[in-house]
Design a protein around this nucleic acid. Structure first.
Ligand SMILES: [Mn+2]
Ligand SMILES: [Mn+2]
Ligand SMILES: [Zn+2]
Ligand SMILES: [Zn+2]
Lengths: 146, 146
DNA sequence: TTATTTACGGATAATGATTATCAATAAGAG
DNA sequence: CTCTTATTGATAATCATTATCCGTAAATAA
């Protein structure tokens, strides 16, 4: 399922809930769904403004709230200033956050579920989601300054 | 190493850095170090005020900043309002956050290091710390409302 | 197409946790 | 005791996010 297909699906589900399809909403959704760099709301705002200068930051906030309700985005809130979002991979997965340059990478190829399941079993919690963030220095930043 | 022993150690290290030992600082440090319920800054402030009414919220913020620099506290910042702190177990460990009552429990008995190590190896990151938070409903909240 | 309804967009004010500021005070060294 | 200056407490400032409100435009049906 590629971005445009997901976009149509999401718009259809929104419409079913009495929501409307506006040019701003489509542009903002497309920006979120296609972003692979975990942008902030502000960054998505600036991207949308490039092709659609008449856009409000408030509308971007309203749109990300919609995506949250629909489970089509995950939020990365750490010691960064401003939350970061991943609507490209909306299922929980590990993130590697570079404390030097601020870049956020997806952690791939490692199955976290067993650990989550073990913690759930040990705690009698009914776990609905999780967040695993590793903080450190990325390869690029290591190369340029030890 | 119990709380009072850690307190003395921390005060000694602070003194070595040109810091001073004030009654407020000691009271706030003691409150942080002995708290096992992941309190907010506000909660620590209220606890200290019980025995030491002449205390400022700003001083609690300054003290938690000191603890952060020293690596003697970990911060849990999520979708909660206000960060939560664990200065009782300052090494990284999983947390179980109840979205119903807001209580935060320590995840125990599960080794997270292998997963962290695997992610570090796969990513060429130099990982310095991590955060693993599970969100869900605690046993108590499940019991009282399905 | 046109009329009607009302969700939406944009601008901006409000919120709230955290941080910065600063004058008065007191800890610690000599 | 005296002096230096880190610290305190009160409060202002910051800043990401949320709430508010009115004019606009998307949907729906006549
Ligand atoms: Mn991601
Ligand atoms: Mn803990
Ligand atoms: Zn980096
Ligand atoms: Zn609960």
């Amino acid at each position: 399922m590629d971005t445009e297909e997901r976009l149509r699906d999401i718009l259809q589900r929104l419409q079913k809930d009495g929501h409307r399809m506006t040019p701003q909403r489509v542009a903002i959704l497309r920006a979120f769904l296609s972003a692979q760099d975990h942008p902030t709301v502000e960054q998505v705002y600036r991207r949308v403004c490039r092709d659609f200068p008449m856009t409000s930051l408030a509308t971007v906030y309203k749109t990300v709230a919609l995506l949250k309700e629909m489970g089509e985005v995950i939020e990365i809130s750490g010691d960064l200033q401003g939350s970061r979002y991943d609507a490209f991979h909306p299922e929980p997965h590990p993130h590697l956050i570079c404390t030097r340059c601020g870049q956020i990478y997806d952690g791939e190829g490692v199955d976290v579920q067993p650990v989550v399941a073990a913690l759930q079993a040990q705690s009698a919690f009914q776990v609905s989601t999780y967040r695993l963030d590793l903080y450190g220095v990325c390869a690029a930043c290591q190369a340029q300054s030890g």
